[in-house]
Design a protein around this nucleic acid. Structure first.
Length: 105
DNA sequence: CATCTGACGACCG
DNA sequence: GCGGTCGCCAGAT
């Protein structure tokens, strides 16, 4: 699979915005669907400028387990997002869709 | 090659 | 909200 395209897309997520595995999968038309996107992120090389923390599950749920979810939450909050109980508050407005430019909070 | 697992998601009761 | 099912399938073992 061309995870590179996934990473490339994730890199484009603006600061303070988030997207989902499903959105990534649909945008890139990954065969494996959302799960494939999940695999891509799981295998993503950390420390390459990939804002992996800006990727959440459907509905803005954080799917990672400890301790990664803690880091993700920390990073998201440092970008101004509000996370409560593994959920991103006001996720709908914070979501960034690939290709779509218009999105006002 | 067979099986299992999983950073998924939509649906349903 | 919660748990179970199903479709999907890439890696790992």
């Amino acid at each position: 699979m061309n995870w590179n395209s996934v990473y490339k897309l994730v890199k484009k997520i603006p600061r303070g915005r988030v997207t989902t595995y499903g959105a990534i999968a649909r945008s890139l038309k990954l065969r494996g669907g959302a799960r494939a996107a999940g695999h891509a992120m799981a295998a993503c090389p950390n420390g390459r400028g990939i804002p992996w923390h800006r990727v959440a599950g459907a509905g803005g749920r954080l799917l990672l387990r400890e301790p990664h979810v803690s880091l993700q939450r920390k990073l998201l909050e440092s970008e101004g997002l509000h996370v409560v109980e593994r959920r991103i508050e006001n996720f709908a407005a914070r979501q960034w869709l690939p290709g779509k430019k218009k999105r006002r909070i």
